[in-house]
Design a protein around this nucleic acid. Structure first.
Lengths: 200, 200
DNA sequence: ACCTGAACACCGTTCAAGT
DNA sequence: ACCTGAACACCGTTCAAGT
């Protein structure tokens, strides 16, 4: 907060640096510790300077969450079994989320991300689902249920076991197996005929 | 905020009234609209007066979320199939959550509730699981995965369909059927031998 | 275009009174 | 015990400068 610069003097700040320091703050002190003012202080700039590089705090967090999704491997759109492609995509997402466990509560609160990477992954998913015969609002639903399931599973896997009972705690391999079973069930449900449950 | 009372004059405020108005505010304006100051203003009291009836804002929201769980039907502990009991309990919880859809984002953010009602339902669940042969940290895990799944499913069911595509949107009956399928799968997974996935 | 200083309109919470 | 007034230590964001 002390003034090393006069008005008009630049700090050499970039949008990428803002995002990087924001991520540090979030990992170190959680979502409550990520404030615009704390962020500005760590960078060494006045709080309002951030608004030259970021539209709002909400947009900043959205960008943060979206950035991580760049690490997800998107399968090819037009080769192989489309449901196998969806399976691979969600499995990769699950792994990426586990690699950034500190961000999981934020994903959970927002029920996913919203930026260009999330958009792209969503488009890939919808294209794969379409090739599998799932379209329209049913595809939108399938997308959402898969996202919620994946984030929820990642949240569950990062929960420290409460250490009661005699059996050994579940390994990350156990969690991954659990995740995989559920994923396969959901995919089976999604590809059923659309009116399988329309009866009384 | 205008002063109708002098210091020392009571407003006849009760803890139940604070909770009731807090719930109004949350339903009307969402989680962001529920502030201690807005709450105090609607009640007609100064903001700090609330702290005579509530420990903190966090505790207030916790109580709010917990209160709703009083509506859940807890099955008998010691009669019938315990897994059928767990199934009935989660199904009742799902229905109660849908009946208070405005609160679902808050449950999601906190991954459940924490008060006495939540505690009681958790105890019932653990007792049922124990009768089904699931104990220790594995039971804790099962509890958590069932909670996350149920809240996530309720969140999914209350999402307005995005209205693209030719097929008719899924009914609440469809959602309930989906929820039931997933619940049965999870229960099957939970009751498998503990080391089913321990291989390489 | 990018920064500072100052300010606006808020927060949750505490502390010292008053009855 | 329950309330008010005032204050503390914060928020996100905007506006008017300066270069």
């Amino acid at each position: 907060m002390p003034a090393f610069r006069n008005p008009g003097q630049r700090a050499g700040l970039t949008r990428d640096r803002v995002l990087a320091v924001a991520r540090e703050l979030l990992v170190e002190h959680g979502m409550d510790g990520l404030t615009m003012r704390a962020l500005a202080e760590r960078i060494g700039v006045s709080p309002n300077a951030l608004y030259s590089h970021v539209e709002s705090k909400t947009a900043l967090v959205d960008d943060l969450l979206d950035e991580v999704l760049a690490e997800v491997d998107a399968p090819a759109l037009d080769v192989g079994d489309p449901i196998a492609g969806v399976h691979a995509l969600m499995t990769s997402t699950y792994k990426v989320l586990l690699a950034h466990a500190d961000l999981i509560p934020a994903y959970l609160a927002r029920q996913g991300a919203r930026g260009p990477h999330a958009q792209h992954l969503g488009d890939v998913m919808l294209a794969l689902l379409e090739r599998a015969g799932v379209t329209g609002s049913r595809a939108q639903e399938a997308l959402h249920v898969l996202i919620v399931y994946t984030i929820g599973s990642a949240a569950f896997a990062t929960r420290a076991p409460l250490a009661s009972g005699e059996s050994s705690p579940p390994t990350s391999r156990d969690h991954a197996a659990h995740f995989d079973h559920g994923l396969r069930w959901i995919l089976a449900g999604i590809t059923l005929p659309a009116d399988y449950a329309r009866s009384a």
